[in-house]
């Protein structure tokens, strides 16, 4: 499987379990150690300023830093896992079901962060998810995986390709446009609702 460097890729499919390097910190999150102490211990080669900077980028506050790991919410765990990946300075940031624990406002912040990481810092970002709706506006490529084999590999511009939806739920906007086209509506491959509204206004 080839993951394009310096791009944002979505890996989709029910059976997406892959042998890609993704550190599992689940056991660490049972510890009662404070977040900041855990990080200082884990990254004893880095100064505290660097750690604080990563936490701030990941929207973790001074209050959050003092929380023991075992009381963190799933939202805070996702943020901390991302901060750890940033501190490790990984070239490839792998995000497994990352979007589930965020409301739109925070997730939009992270989407902008990921775009910046790719364009400014040459990082590669990979979303492993079954929820195409929330990431379809930032991905460059789509890989669909079944039984650990890539069955589809396409540019995200081809997001309207029907075959993808044999494996994952179709985003509602795509479903709507396809239905409208059956009623002879002249609509383009919209992924943004505001653009769709303009298209509908021109079409009806």
């Amino acid at each position: 499987m080839e993951i394009k460097k310096n791009k944002i890729t979505a890996i989709l499919g029910i059976d997406t379990d892959l042998n890609i390097d993704e550190e599992k910190l689940e056991l660490d999150f049972l510890k009662s150690i404070k977040m900041i102490d855990y990080l200082k211990n884990k990254f004893n080669n880095l100064n505290e300023e660097k750690i604080n900077e990563a936490l701030k980028i990941c929207l973790l506050t001074d209050i959050d830093k003092q929380k023991p790991l075992n009381v963190l919410s799933s939202n805070e765990i996702e943020k901390l896992e991302l901060a750890i990946k940033l501190l490790e300075n990984r070239e490839m940031i792998i995000l497994s079901d990352f979007e589930i624990n965020f409301l739109n406002r925070e997730f939009n912040y992270f989407k902008n962060l990921f775009k910046k990481m790719v364009t400014k810092y040459n990082k590669t970002v990979v979303f492993i998810t079954n929820n195409l709706t929330r990431i379809m506006d930032i991905i460059d490529f789509i890989l669909v995986v079944e039984n650990k084999t890539v069955v589809l590999e396409l540019n995200a511009k081809n997001i309207y390709y029907d075959k993808i939806y044999d494996y994952v739920d179709m985003p509602e906007i795509i479903n709507f446009v396809k239905l409208a086209r059956k009623n002879h509506a002249k609509l383009e491959d919209y992924t943004d609702i505001n653009e769709l509204i303009k298209g509908i206004f021109r079409s009806v």
Binding site: E172, L179, N183
Partner: peptide, 10 residues
């Protein structure tokens, strides 16, 4: 319902 809306618009 998507179908109802599509039928209403087109």
């Amino acid at each position: 319902d998507k179908e109802l809306l599509v039928n209403k618009l087109w």
